[in-house]
């Protein structure tokens, strides 16, 4: 059984919960109180993952940390169809990698602004975080627009969603909780609606199901 070190308001932990739900894989929760207790920086958690970030999974003895890496692991090991993380087409695999890196880069911007506004992380420079998020969202919106124009519904040029979409979706859709309005990004809004319509989709607080 997969153990997921989880916190319900963590956008990164939600990436893992979402993919697990879409894959239909059973898991058990190991609850880590991120706020206010900061248990992700407690010695017991650091012994498991010295980076001190959620989520972490323990899968049959293998410890995997980093939200994007968790997605790679889950899709590689638990998706017999291979569609969530396509690895037999180098061009496609490379596209997925690009968007996994993009998702990680949302942590100090969109995600940080949300922590500042919602969980009162007073030490974050929220103006700088929002400015960075808008730069990234503009890039994402344009990319999605051109993809749509070419007939593709997802981040990668393939006719089904991949872990790239799962990695980018949470911090994008939750950006408004950090004061980052999405209404000027129409292609992003259409894409988030499509993600919500994936069979087996689950929401989290702050995200309305379709």
């Amino acid at each position: 059984m997969i153990e997921l070190y989880d916190y319900e308001l963590s956008s990164d932990a939600y990436k893992a919960r979402l993919l697990l739900a879409l894959l239909g894989v059973a898991w058990t929760q190991r609850y880590v109180e991120y706020y206010p207790r900061r248990q992700h920086r407690a010695p017991e958690f650091l012994a498991l993952s010295p980076r001190g970030e959620l989520p972490v999974i323990v899968d049959d003895g293998t410890i995997v940390d980093d939200a994007q890496n968790v997605l790679v692991h889950l899709a590689s090991r638990h998706d017999p169809t291979g569609r969530w993380y396509p690895q037999n087409d180098a061009g496609l695999t490379s596209q997925v990698s690009t968007w996994l890196a993009f998702a990680a880069a949302l942590t100090p911007t969109a995600s940080a602004a949300r922590l500042h506004d919602g969980l009162l992380y007073h030490h974050i420079d929220v103006d700088e975080a929002r400015r960075g998020a808008h730069e990234q969202l503009a890039v994402l919106d344009e990319h999605l627009w051109f993809n749509e124009d070419a007939g593709w519904s997802w981040l990668c040029t393939v006719d089904q969603p991949t872990i790239a979409d799962i990695a980018c979706f949470p911090d994008v859709i939750l950006a408004e909780e950090g004061g980052i309005e999405l209404r000027t990004y129409p292609a992003i809004r259409r894409w988030t609606d499509r993600v919500k319509a994936i069979p087996g989709f689950i929401a989290m607080p702050g995200i309305f199901p379709a």
Partner: peptide
Amino acid sequence: RWFQRLIIGQDRR
């Protein structure tokens, strides 16, 4: 705390 956070998280939006 989990329960209150969940409820407020749902209200916020």
